[in-house]
Design a protein around this nucleic acid. Structure first.
Lengths: 156, 156
DNA sequence: GATGAAATCATTTACGA
DNA sequence: TCGTAAATGATTTCATC
């Protein structure tokens, strides 16, 4: 495997394979093979290379939360007391299934999270009863996503 | 298909199927069938039902951006001039591949985005030359994710 | 909803160019 | 890195319960 600047070298064919599978993880390898004009076994070999390199870190079915009634996405900046350890708070945030992302960030907030709830009532409950209940959380600042217009992975 | 409160009814078997495929989109249906103890054809039928309901919105290979040298994730709150139309700005943000998410939000910012760059230099270039260059962008506020501790979909 | 059987198609390995 | 070939395994459809 060629290494360039501590990165893997991925060529045009790798890119086509990746783009197709990033768009539809269950697309048959043979279908991609026919499209790019090499054998299925060759695609298979390339995929194993890409997996070994760590570039492909898995595959996922994507579910649409709206179908389950989750209509309100919000972001919450969290202020932690100086005494409170960040990892302890994160562990408690992990227990809240509505928390989809959690970041340790620069700036005023100690922690920044993305949450998904059914409606505003649900959001209020999460904030007041679950997040504020975490030891060390002194204050939160919330803003709601009224509409998500872009959602994608890094382009290959 | 049973409908409960304008939602689909998904039973325990559906949940197992979904959880497994949300974790690994290429897991063979027959393997799941053996695990839950019903036939492959039955799983197949259930998957078609779940797809038709819209709950399954697709599948994706997940790539690890770090392998490609993308090490700096940041969030940017964008202030737009009153005159500037939101959709026009979003269209220009779409042209910037480093923009992974874009939300229209409540609060002080008009637009809130998540971006992924290689390093701080790259981030600065994005902010100064690409994002600030968008017509109507008056000011931005940026904070960097030093570490992402949670990343997941809604739990089924 | 579930099943088994059958046809079609895909994955995976080994080996040689 | 690619291709072919062959074995195994998966998907998909259908008639039926």
């Amino acid at each position: 495997m060629k290494i360039v600047n501590e990165q893997i070298a991925i060529d045009g064919i790798d890119k086509i394979i990746l783009r197709q599978l990033m768009d539809d993880a269950r697309k048959p390898i043979l279908e991609i093979a026919r499209q790019v004009g090499i054998s299925g076994a060759a695609i298979h070999q390339r995929l194993r290379k890409l997996e070994k390199s760590g570039l492909i870190s898995g595959s996922k079915f994507i579910v649409d939360p709206k179908i389950l009634g989750y209509n309100t996405m919000a972001f919450v900046g969290i202020y932690l007391d100086r005494a409170m350890s960040n990892p302890k708070a994160v562990k408690q945030l992990e227990e809240i299934p509505e928390v989809l992302e959690c970041h340790y960030t620069t700036g005023n907030w100690s922690i920044f999270i993305k949450i998904l709830c059914k409606n505003n009532e649900h959001l209020m409950h999460l904030l007041n009863k679950k997040i504020q209940a975490i030891e060390g959380v002194s204050r939160t600042e919330t803003f709601i996503s009224l509409n998500q217009q872009i959602e994608r992975q890094i382009q290959i």
